[in-house]
Computed example of a mutant assay.
Amino acid sequence: MPYFDSERGRLHCRRWALDDPAARIALLPGTGQHSGHYHRFAAALRSAGIELWALDTAGQGLSEGDPAAPGGLAELTADAQQFLALVRTDHSAAPVLMGHSLGAATAVHLATENPADLAGLVLCGTPRRAAAVVPDPALPVLAVHGVDDRRAPVDVIRLWTARHRSVDLREYADAGHDLLHEPVRDRVAADIARWVLTVVR
C-alpha cells in the first residue's frame, strides 16, 4: 500500500494492481470516504482490464490529518497532483482521473490546470461549485449522476453539460449521491469501464 508525503502529512493510497492494464483510473473519494470503500468498484474494473488507484484524503482512511478538516481546494488539488505523479511512476500512459463529490470538485479543478496530464475525467455526484468550472474541450469528460441526488441536484449538472458539449452525462433513475454504493453500482461501474476503454484506445 503506497504512501507519499504531502505538506500536511503522510498520505495513503491503495492500488488494485493488474499486469499490463488497458487503462488506469486514479480516484479521489468524497468527504468521509476512503480507498477501503472501493473494493467492489475495483473488482468491476479489473474484469475490464482497468487498474484502480484510490487516495485516502487527509484525515481519512490511513492518511494523516484531521478528519473534520480535509483542506481547502488548493490543498486538495496539491495532494491530488502528488497522487497522480505516484500513479504515473513507471507508466508512460496518462491515467483517467475520477472524483466523487468533494473529489469531483478537486478533480475538475486539477483538470483545468493540467489537462494534458490526463487521458480523461470521470465525475460522480458533481457538486454545484464544480459545475462553475469550464473544462478543456479537448479533454474527454464523463459525468455520472443520480437523478434523486439531494446533495448535488442533477439539474445543476444538466445545465453544466448543456453548456459543455464535450461532457458525456449519464443519469441513473432511483439513485442518489453515492452511485458506487447504491443498487445501480454495477451498471455505473460498467458504464465507466466502457467509457474509459473508449477514451484510452
Rank of each mutant, 00 (worst) to 15 (best):
residue 1 M to S: 13
residue 4 F to L: 15
residue 4 F to A: 10
residue 4 F to I: 10
residue 6 S to F: 09
residue 8 R to F: 14
residue 8 R to V: 14
residue 9 G to C: 11
residue 9 G to I: 13
residue 10 R to W: 06
residue 14 R to G: 02
residue 14 R to Q: 08
residue 18 L to Q: 14
residue 22 A to D: 05
residue 24 R to K: 11
residue 24 R to C: 10
residue 25 I to V: 15
residue 26 A to N: 12
residue 27 L to A: 05
residue 27 L to N: 01
residue 29 P to Y: 08
residue 30 G to M: 00
residue 36 G to L: 04
residue 39 H to N: 09
residue 40 R to G: 05
residue 40 R to I: 06
residue 45 L to T: 01
residue 45 L to P: 01
residue 46 R to E: 00
residue 48 A to D: 04
residue 49 G to H: 03
residue 50 I to C: 03
residue 52 L to Q: 06
residue 53 W to C: 02
residue 53 W to T: 01
residue 55 L to N: 02
residue 55 L to F: 03
residue 57 T to I: 09
residue 58 A to W: 05
residue 59 G to D: 07
residue 60 Q to P: 01
residue 61 G to I: 04
residue 61 G to Y: 02
residue 64 E to R: 11
residue 65 G to E: 12
residue 66 D to G: 15
residue 68 A to K: 14
residue 68 A to F: 14
residue 70 P to H: 13
residue 72 G to W: 08
residue 72 G to A: 12
residue 73 L to R: 14
residue 75 E to V: 14
residue 76 L to C: 08
residue 76 L to D: 04
residue 77 T to Q: 09
residue 77 T to V: 13
residue 78 A to W: 04
residue 79 D to I: 10
residue 80 A to V: 06
residue 83 F to S: 08
residue 83 F to M: 14
residue 86 L to R: 13
residue 88 R to I: 01
residue 90 D to K: 12
residue 90 D to E: 15
residue 92 S to Y: 13
residue 92 S to P: 15
residue 94 A to G: 06
residue 95 P to W: 09
residue 101 S to E: 04
residue 102 L to N: 06
residue 102 L to H: 04
residue 106 T to H: 03
residue 108 V to H: 00
residue 109 H to M: 05
residue 110 L to K: 02
residue 114 N to E: 12
residue 118 L to R: 07
residue 119 A to M: 11
residue 122 V to I: 11
residue 124 C to K: 01
residue 125 G to M: 10
residue 131 A to P: 00
residue 133 V to G: 04
residue 134 V to E: 06
residue 135 P to V: 10
residue 135 P to N: 11
residue 135 P to E: 13
residue 135 P to H: 10
residue 138 A to M: 05
residue 138 A to F: 02
residue 138 A to C: 09
residue 140 P to W: 05
residue 140 P to R: 07
residue 142 L to N: 01
residue 146 G to T: 02
residue 146 G to I: 00
residue 154 V to Q: 00
residue 154 V to S: 03
residue 156 V to Y: 00
residue 158 R to D: 08
residue 159 L to E: 11
residue 164 H to T: 07
residue 164 H to Q: 13
residue 164 H to W: 09
residue 165 R to S: 15
residue 165 R to T: 15
residue 166 S to L: 13
residue 168 D to T: 15
residue 169 L to K: 12
residue 169 L to M: 12
residue 173 A to D: 15
residue 173 A to W: 14
residue 176 G to V: 10
residue 178 D to S: 11
residue 181 H to K: 12
residue 183 P to S: 11
residue 186 D to Q: 11
residue 188 V to M: 07
residue 188 V to W: 05
residue 188 V to Y: 05
residue 189 A to K: 06
residue 190 A to R: 14
residue 190 A to H: 13
residue 192 I to E: 02
residue 196 V to A: 10
residue 197 L to Q: 05
residue 199 V to K: 07
residue 199 V to A: 08
residue 199 V to I: 15
